[in-house]
Design a protein around this nucleic acid. Structure first.
Lengths: 113, 113
DNA sequence: TATAATAGTTACCAACAGGAAAGTTTTGTG
DNA sequence: CACAAAACTTTCCTGTTGGTAACTATTATA
């Protein structure tokens, strides 16, 4: 996600720009199962690096999709959760998951674990 | 889309890999309104270059999402249309469009034309 | 004083997606 | 023979995305 002001003529194009990239949707997917801490996300979002995670968490917070809550504890605790706005992405995630489940099976060498 | 064999553990991740990038979904979106020729697509998919269009048309054909029909005419005529498989992407496009319509309006400086 | 835990940041680098501009092929028409 | 039209292809270049690895800050505990 960039901060460039761009005029969109197409809602689909707008959405694609908002959630583009390898990680945003996968992060939201994990948060769907409940609020999570930074290190939990590192473990659950397979393959994501600290840099990518914090970068995308920042973006998502600015977009109003997730909420970041800091607990005044030692050691520090920060919890990420979906906002109401974020929950509105569920239909997108569902349709992606639906299409994926059907089409993954056609691929030789892929497994569902 | 790459040809690399990759094992997927998550249907959402699989789908994202299949339709990732700036153009695939926008091409499918246009073909939803009927079969189109190459030059029509160039005009309708705002901003796409010849290179990007033919590259993604090739990918989409290999993925079984679109069908390419050549007419033996002079000058040449090639028509692209969605396959049954391609039509299964409609729910994804619909959810992207839905989210986009709602959220675009919140952006100052964006207009729907 | 050294270590551990959490939540990051920073610097550097590589790969790939994408863009610009020009060229290619085929045949028909003036 | 030159040009037009359709459908691409090719070359070269740039910018963004993403990856690796190391480093930082804070406080508690042994």
């Amino acid at each position: 996600m960039s901060t460039k002001r761009k005029v969109y003529y197409c809602p689909v194009e707008f959405t694609l720009d908002q959630i583009a990239g390898k990680w945003k949707i996968l992060i939201v997917l994990q948060l769907r199962f409940g609020a999570k801490r930074y290190t939990e996300l590192i473990k659950k979002v397979r393959g994501i690096t600290p840099k990518m995670l914090s970068q995308h968490l920042k973006d998502l917070e600015q977009q109003g999709i997730i909420h970041r809550q800091i607990f005044a504890e030692i050691p520090p605790k920060v919890e990420y959760s979906l906002t109401k706005e974020g929950e509105k992405l569920f239909p997108i995630i569902d349709s992606l998951a639906q299409w994926g489940s059907v089409n993954m099976e056609k691929e030789k060498g892929s497994e569902i674990v």
